[in-house]
């Protein structure tokens, strides 16, 4: 009934034939694996290159006998061309705009996350989530336009002459909107990672939804929310275009949100956009700033990632 079988399959005698199971050299396989490994390692090379290149130029900057760490971290005027090396002139603006941004995005992002994870019906989520996703997808230069030409005029109406055309408040507020989706989506992940059983435990003890959300779920998700906050700060510190457009061109040691001041990122963008001769102190100083930015954001990102991983382990 199944004679064909015999044709394709060795008969009993044939099946005693010896076969060789020795390793074959598969050059193609090895070459491909080597290439793939190289692709994987390239990202590490990127980091090495960042540290090396930024470090090299930054060393040139700090190698200048006129530049001392005391001046760099101790003074409040920044104009390397004429011997002023106080990074605080830029850091103050970075801190101010970031603080404003976070004070907007943290409460809003968290509230949005709680609503989405604890309250929203699937249908409401279907409408609300895309709004946040669109906000997250808008290029930052567009936010810059919005800050300068929409928010600033409104602020001018409110504060009148007390506020400058370019000001940190407008940039910070808009940056807050920009970061909101990041904080809300990370917080939402943290909240929904809290096991159902914990919520049910709270309900079973007669808690209302709010009591369960705020007193049981939220504390359980706190470290994940902390990670969101830290990543948000990192994003704010590194954000360039909003501040480059709206917060002002020119270092100014000030924490007054109504004043114009230039952040570290804004400064790099403005100076490097002009004609810049390599080896000038202006050029090398930018790398010193960039290196600081890189290190600060790196540490923040690492902490945030560490927290997220710990958090994940706990509930998995």
């Amino acid at each position: 009934m199944k004679e064909e079988v015999l044709n394709i399959k060795a008969t009993e005698t044939q099946s005693f034939r010896q076969f060789d199971l020795k390793k074959k050299t598969r050059i193609g396989e090895s070459v491909i694996q080597a290439l793939l490994f190289f692709a994987g390692i390239l990202s590490v090379l990127t980091t090495v290159a960042i540290v090396y290149e930024l470090g090299k130029e930054a060393m040139l900057f700090f190698g200048n006998p006129d530049v001392t760490f005391a001046k760099f971290f101790g003074e409040t005027k920044w104009q390397p061309g004429i011997g002023q090396y106080g990074i605080w002139a830029l850091v103050s603006a970075t801190l101010t705009t970031s603080a404003i941004a976070i004070s907007i995005s943290l409460p809003l992002g968290l509230a949005a996350a709680i609503y989405l994870s604890e309250y929203a019906s699937p249908k409401a989520r279907g409408i609300l989530k895309p709004v946040l996703e669109i906000l997250a997808g808008i290029p930052t230069v567009v936010y810059g336009y919005f800050a300068l030409l929409f928010v600033t005029p409104i602020l001018q109406n409110i504060f009148g002459d007390n506020i400058q055309v370019y000001n940190m408040l407008s940039a910070g507020l808009v940056m807050g909107i920009m970061i909101l989706p990041l904080i809300s989506s990370m917080s939402e992940d943290a909240l929904s990672a809290v096991p159902r059983s914990l919520r049910e435990a709270a309900y079973a003890m007669g808690a209302t939804k709010l009591e369960s959300s705020l007193q049981v779920v939220l504390p359980a998700a706190l470290s994940g929310i902390g990670a969101a906050l830290i990543l948000g700060i990192s994003r704010a510190v590194g954000e360039t275009m909003i501040v480059a457009v709206a917060s002002g061109a020119g270092p100014n040691f000030s924490f007054n949100p109504l004043e114009a001041a230039e952040t570290m990122t804004g400064h790099i963008a403005r100076i490097s956009g002009g004609d810049l001769s390599y080896n000038s102190i202006d050029y090398t100083s930018l790398f010193a700033i960039a290196l600081m930015l890189f290190l600060v954001t790196l540490v923040l990102n690492l902490i945030s990632q560490y927290i997220v991983n710990r958090f994940r382990e706990r509930y998995e």
Binding site: Q18, F19, D20, L21, K22, K23, K24
Partner: peptide, 16 residues
């Protein structure tokens, strides 16, 4: 398998 140890180093798992 036919006197060849499938776990010896020179055996190719793909062939196995």
């Amino acid at each position: 398998l036919q006197g060849q140890n499938l776990y010896s180093k020179d055996i190719d798992p793909v062939e196995v």
